[in-house]
Write a protein that binds this DNA or RNA. Structure first.
Lengths: 163, 163
DNA sequence: GTGTAATCAGGAACACCTTGCAATTGGAGT
DNA sequence: ACTCCAATTGCAAGGTGTTCCTGATTACAC
């Protein structure tokens, strides 16, 4: 499994609460699970699985498996910003939708509703409900866009419309 | 390198033309290169690198390296639809922007301008120029969305009561 | 406590992609 | 046609995830 779009969200505010929620779902509390939950609470933003492997001294497979289990039960989630490793976080922390600049790597976190006009437009025109919580909106940020006239030269012929 | 956003596009209509363009860029025509170009012309849509490896009997690294070289020189491109392997194609074939349904895998190819209103909105509000040619717009298609009322409720205002 | 069964961790293997290096080869110049 | 040298390939290994299997743990009933 790579992503759990339809799971009820479990927003918890401390490790014990997460552990209770976990048990309520019929899951057990293993050492790896406890360490992961504590680390996610301690983190101040989404972190890579690799980071957790190294800082917690756990097996890779255990980390990925548990992140997936927790995600399937609504406790955690992960986001992909372009290429590169996925970043994992607790549900309810640093949530929203992401803009990612593929030139400089800048990440902009938007509130959950800020892209609603975009979502509405896409749904009305194409019947597709977009979600940028799992895959970021990839593009070029303001600084990078204005800093590279060469880009305009190359991409211009796609649609020559006055910006 | 993972992506070449700023390369002048080289749209060619037959293998020989691609080969001339390639030589004009100072590249050599190796067997692997020729086979790849021919296969991309023969394909009727974006294909995975793995598919090329198998059908052409080439080394993996050679395929990936050459797809990257060709992309850096504006002859090919690739797109990511959610998780799963990237899909490679000639520049000028099946181009546009993609909607990808993460439930059923359905892919919708939009014309190059169809998401301009969305792009404009995002640029005006967030100073970010979005490009959905490399990463698809991931979400839920009409069929899958209506089949799962739970999802529709969650998408607009995310509040959950037990179900 | 002890027993039991389902869950879980460790490890290897695999999928996708990238990188480093030695050996090979394309093709320009002669 | 031959030489030569950089471009290119093959091979091996690494990085990010995912999956499978088997032995160890956990939770729970006694």
């Amino acid at each position: 499994m790579t992503n759990a779009p339809d799971v009820p969200r479990l927003v918890v505010t401390e490790p014990d609460e997460a552990i209770r929620a976990l048990r309520a779902s019929g899951l057990r509390l293993s050492t790896a699970r406890r360490l992961l939950i504590e680390a996610l609470f301690a983190a101040d933003g989404p972190v890579s699985a690799q980071h957790l492997v190294q800082t917690l001294g756990l097996e890779e497979s255990s980390v990925y498996r548990n992140l997936e289990v927790l995600e399937r039960h609504g406790l955690t989630r992960h986001v992909h910003l372009g290429h590169g490793p996925g970043l994992y976080a607790l549900v309810g922390r640093d949530e929203g939708e992401y803009l990612y600049c593929e030139r400089c790597g800048k990440v902009t976190l938007l509130g959950p509703d800020e892209l609603d006009p975009v979502r509405d437009h896409i749904r009305e025109h194409f019947g597709h409900t977009a979600r940028f919580t799992h895959f970021a909106v990839v593009g070029v940020c303001q600084g990078c866009g204005s800093a590279t006239p060469a880009a305009a030269a190359g991409a211009t012929h796609r649609h020559h419309h006055g910006h």
